[in-house]
Each structure stands twice: as structure tokens, then as C-alpha cells.
Design a protein around this nucleic acid. Sequence first.
DNA 1: CTCTATTGTTGGAGCGCTCTAAGGCTGTAG
DNA 2: CTACAGCCTTAGAGCGCTCCAACAATAGAG
Lengths: 331, 331
Amino acid sequence: MARPTMEDVAARAGVSRALVSLVMRGSPKVSDQRRAAVLKAAEELGYSPHAMARSLASRTSHVLGVMVSDLHNAFFAEVVDGLDAVAAEHGFELILNTGGRSPARERRALRSLLSFRPAGLALLSPVVPTADIGRAAEQTPVVLVARSSRLATVDTVNDDGERGIALAVDHLVSLGHRRIAHLDGGAGSQAAPRRRGYLAAMASHGLTPRVVASEYTDAGGARAVRGLSGDLPTAIVSCNDFNAVGAISALEEAGFRVPRDVSVVGYDNTSLAALRHVSLTTVDQPRNELGRLAATALLQRVRGDRVEPVRHLLHPSLVVRSTTAPPVRPA
Amino acid sequence: MARPTMEDVAARAGVSRALVSLVMRGSPKVSDQRRAAVLKAAEELGYSPHAMARSLASRTSHVLGVMVSDLHNAFFAEVVDGLDAVAAEHGFELILNTGGRSPARERRALRSLLSFRPAGLALLSPVVPTADIGRAAEQTPVVLVARSSRLATVDTVNDDGERGIALAVDHLVSLGHRRIAHLDGGAGSQAAPRRRGYLAAMASHGLTPRVVASEYTDAGGARAVRGLSGDLPTAIVSCNDFNAVGAISALEEAGFRVPRDVSVVGYDNTSLAALRHVSLTTVDQPRNELGRLAATALLQRVRGDRVEPVRHLLHPSLVVRSTTAPPVRPA
DNA sequence: CTCTATTGTTGGAGCGCTCTAAGGCTGTAG
DNA sequence: CTACAGCCTTAGAGCGCTCCAACAATAGAG
């Protein structure tokens, strides 16, 4: 497994190591004849450049560090997918870590990523204190995804949860609903903006808000609905798709039909929502786009195209399916 | 952003660079006094070792390359999660790529990963020709996940799809079913062993098999069920969970109840299946474990603990939920 | 035919680290 | 007081590459 080096290729092609280096980097200042000879020798030896040695010598990196709080979550997987797409387009590689939503483990993961001197660092919904993020940002460009920050040195990419929920509320109002409840995501990430968006949207329509404590799971959604007993709204805006599906099943168990008796809107547009069996009206969060923008932000910094921090707030969109309809009960 | 080097730390601590190196590597042959001095200097300078320089100098790598055919798929995300867990335990980092299920892109991704001279390479359900895999295996240990291979130089980790489907069939037979159909995954990965498992299990019970062409999507499952019209089996074993959910919704649309009229079993135990709203009986594939075993296989090779190839065939298990019940119609 | 460009090529220093072999120091035995 | 183990410590070569300055070779200008 002792792989050939540039020296070997140079010897075989009868040129200097520096010339091989030029060829490998696609320099134009090499005669066609030599280039062909070098390429041939490289091919024969099965040579390919050593990325780490290259990075060390050139003092540049073609690696982006990515810390995912939790890959188990399909949301992040799709963000990473977007990151990878843009990175690959520009010849960058991803080096990936998870923090398991524990500050201590995240701090370790961060240190490890930084030890590779990445060109940039993307942190997906990190839970470490801002101070740690600021420290990392002193070493390399940092972009935060699904976590906002006021740090002047980092870029952020988030979806506009307030606006997303507003879309849901507006949709329900336009259908004729007035008693619209929100199943809240509690301390979950992005639950706060969604709650704010709900309250603001209700206020803008002159309606009385009703926030019901819940969480980001289907069991949570079901529980919240059961707690509603006796005083059912005509529509529910859930904090996410899982919660919405839980709410729907609890409603059906209680003998109500969705959307005839109660309309339900989710959030995230997970693959779950698209299933014909579920067919959930929901708010689409452009996950892949989140990743693409994050990678783009890093690459801009790497190339020095931009110094000022950028704050992307992506516009979510409403996907209307079969769980929403005009109310039949008196509003 | 010019970060301190070992030289800087050495100067500050008043020792040689080599001594700093020893301290950083946790060598025992350093006096406590010097060690403390070095650590203090490093701390003050905010020094942390340069992983790539270290790797180059020591001719060892603490990086595992991972090529995912498609991160979009939650299955792979969980496998990566398992890989990461084991890698992190052993101080290894993951460098990640996707191949987008295109041989050309996968080949490029492979080359790129190899240019980092990783300690090992995990390929998740790759579609490149075996020859390319063999070539990669000449450079570094390779483990294949969710793809089998006869290559004597690579390890493989798969779930035992034949056995998994057999579990499903056995379960249905024990409930009293005799007319059990299989919705086939076509050319999808792992569809073949599942089909084989179905045929073998039916034969072992002396039952007549019925394979219905379908695919790994909910629309596919629905379509297949509609094609069954008039001659409904009492139970269906789907090629995966999505397919099963599609089948269920088509059954319900046609006025049948699950599991009263027809029992349905899925495969994969995705988060979808666990939803109370779906509550699908399914075969659990230990995805995280798949990743953990893959990482472990690579690390064994790296350490030289093992030379012989290993073929892991993980035992799936049946998760019984609410979509299976004894048949009420005549068998 | 000499002088300056221009183009192509090369040696060598150095990126930040590891590792070997050799050297300095201390303490104890002879 | 010398010798010889340890035990720490260090100089220096080198990992595979990039990049700069210098240089050969050819070409065009005077």
C-alpha cells in the first residue's frame, strides 16, 4: 500500500518534481509534450496527489468542517446533502462530526474539526455556548444553520419560522377558520419563532390566540389534543409534522374527522407529510437550500468575496394537501 | 488567523519542538514539570495540533472516508450516525461524500476521498462497478454496507433480508394466513434477497407464493394493490415501509380495513412505521448497528487485528404493531 | 550577431509535524 | 572520583507537496 509520490512520477517521466506539481495543478505554463509524458507516467503508476500534503504545503484547505447536532434527524441529513452538493461543485470535501446535542461533546467535536484547519465550518443547530462559536470563528469562517446569533463574525442561515407559521394561519383564516390553536414545540429548536409567528398572525387577523403546550413528537401532538377535550378549535397549527400526525390520530380516535371537523397544518414538509396516507397540509422548509446557502456563504468568505456577515432568512412556503378545509361547525 | 505552531509553543515554554510533540501525544517520558510548562504555553497561545501535518509526518491517518450513495435517504443517515459514533470513540474523523447514485459521480467521489489517504473507506450502497471497488481496496481497507460482494479484499455489512422477510411470513402464517402476497421492490437495492426470502418462506410452509411487481414508494404500493383488484390476498408483505403505507391507503380507499380484511407488513422500521397514526408491523433493520459494525471492521483492519475479510449479515427482527391480525375471511 | 523578452523548467526552502539516534544529566555503585 | 545506568531532552532528517527565484532555451528586436 506504499503509494507512489510525485518524485516517482517525476523520475518515470524524466522531469523534475516541480514540473509534475505544475501539471497536477493544471498550470498552463507546461509544454504539451511534457504534460503528456507526466500524465502518462502518473497513469501508469496509479498516482494521485496527496490532498493533505498539498494542503499543508499550500497553506490552503479544500475541506469544510460540518458539525451536525444529530444526524439521526432527517432534517439535518438533507441540510448536509445540500452542503455536499455545493462543496462538491467547488472541489471541496466535507469532514463531518456529530455533537449529540451535548455541549461537552460538541466542544470536543468542534476542536477535532478545527484541528484539520478547515477552510470553513458549518454548525447545524449547535448547542454550545455562543462564546465557543465566537472562538471558532476566530480561526476560520463559521456559518450557523438553524441557530441564530448576533455574533458579528459568523453567518447564519435559517428559515423564517414566523413567516412560515403566518402562512399556515393565513391559509386557515382564508378558509374561514377563526378558532385556530397552536400546538407549541416548547423548548425545541425554532419553536420560539413559530410561536411568535402564530401570535402575530392571529393578532393581525384580530383573532384570539390559543397556545397549547406540546412537543415535537407524534405522542406529544396526541397528548395535546386529548387535553383539549370539550373545547375543540376548528383548526390546529402544529409545531411540526410529527406533532400534526399525532394530533390527527388522536382526533380520529376521539371520533372526529380531519379535515371535516378539524383542520390540521404541520410544519417541515417531511417525506411523511407527502405520503398519500397522510397527505398533510404543511409548511415546507427548504432544507437542501439551507445547506446550499450555508456552503455558499463559507465559500464566499474563503475566497474573500465577502467580509460582512450575512443573515439568510429563507422563505418557507405552504404546501396544501388534504388536512385542511373550510370549517363546518360554527366558527 | 495565523495560528501558532509547535515551534511557538516550544519557544514560549523554553523547550524544544520535539518535547512539545511528546507532550501533545501524551507520552509518559516527559517530566511533570516540563509537561506542565508546555501545557501552559499551549493554553496561553491557544495552540492545538495540526491534524494534517501530524498525519503527514506520522504516515498514519485518523480519517475514515465515507461515500454515501444518497444522504437524502434517512436509512443512510442513520448508518452514518453509527459510523460516526464508533469513529469518535476511537479518535477518528469522518470525511464524507455523496455519489448521487451515478457511477461517474461515485468514481469521482471515491478518488477524492482516496486523495486524503484515509485509514479506511466505507461505501454505503455504492453503484460503481466492482472493479473500481477492488482498485480502491488496494489502497486502503474498504467495507461495503448494503451491498454484497465476493471481493476477497473487502468486508461487507448487510442485513439478512431473506431472514427478515421470513420473519414476516412466519408471523402471518402463525396468525393463520395462507394467501400471502409479496409486493416486490423490483431493481431496488436489497429487493432480490427479500424476494428470495419470501419465496423460500412460502415454500417452507407449503404455500403458493404470489409476487406482485412494485417499487420502494408509497405510490408504488398503492398501484400494486389496485392491480390486485378482485383477487385480494389476506395478507401482504411489502418490500419496505413506504410501499406498505401506500398499500394500506389504497386498501382503505377501496373500502377494506387493515388489518381486519387484509394484514400488511412493512420492512425497515422507519420512523414512519412507529407513528401511532400508522402503527405498522414491520421488520426492523438495525441501521445504526450496520454503521457501527462497518466502522469496527475498518478499525480492525487499520490496527492489523484482522486480515481475513468479514461478512456481517445482521439479524433483522420483527416489530409487531397494529397492521397484522388473524384473517377473518376464509383462507 | 548581440540583447532583451518570453516561455518552460528546475532546485531548494519550507508547510507543521513525527521519530530516530544521539546527547546531557542525575544518581548510585564500584 | 570514575563509570554506567537510567531518564529526559534535543537536533535533524523527512513526510509529500507548493512556490519562488533562478535559469536554460528559444524567439524576436535592434
